[in-house]
Nucleic acid binder design. Structure first.
Lengths: 106, 106
DNA sequence: TTATTATGATACCAAAAAGTATCACGTTGC
DNA sequence: GCAACGTGATACTTTTTGGTATCATAATAA
């Protein structure tokens, strides 16, 4: 049971892995299916999936010879928890923050 | 003006940088002051501060020969915005998530 | 059985990251 | 002016990371 916060933050640091998270948010997919969405080898995608799994952000379930990769929403908890720390400090600036977020969402 | 989301996530991927964020949440500090809290050279700390600045997570203000490093709460907006994306998908699981967060905060 | 398929694992390479050492430069204080 | 101080910047080393290529293995399909 290593540092789950560190593993989660590290997993989210790569843009490909964040894209995979978005992908899997729609559907659970096999490694091969995920690979079709990216311009890299299946082996590279599998590595990213391993990092995401280490970070607790996805779960992997074997079905025959396939591996179904599925989002684990609870994996984001350590990340949100860490961010939550800052809410306690700037309750006054939090309003600005939320405004900025809403403006940023497309 | 590159990918601010990427720069912010990258900045948060390092445990030292996350610790610096917590440090600066209490007080704005000079580079030398931040350095006293870590077992590494001032140059290394300065590099971390540069990465945090690139990620928009801190602002740096010159005061004489000193550089005051200060948290920029709005810098977290791209990160929170990205995370917010997932809220739309699991409104049902969001309750579990929030429970997990509260339990994780010490 | 035999061929195909999906995956795991390993070795390897290039680029990026984390760190140190060092020096130059502007600011402060005497 | 001059010494001390805080910082910026560069060069360099080591480790980590993102990627490919390749092969072994288990499951499926004919």
């Amino acid at each position: 049971m290593p540092d789950q916060t560190q593993n989660a933050f590290r997993a989210l640091a790569d843009p490909t892995r964040r894209d995979i998270m978005r992908l899997l948010s729609a559907n659970a997919l096999t490694i091969a299916e995920v690979s079709t969405h990216f311009d890299m080898t299946r082996a590279a995608v599998k590595k990213h999936l391993t990092v995401l799994n280490d970070g607790g952000l996805i779960t992997v379930e074997a079905r025959g010879r396939e591996r179904i990769n599925q989002i684990n929403p609870l994996g984001l908890a350590p990340v949100l928890s860490w961010l939550e720390f800052f809410d306690h400090f700037w309750d006054d600036r939090l309003a600005d923050l939320k405004t900025a977020i809403e403006k940023d969402i497309q």
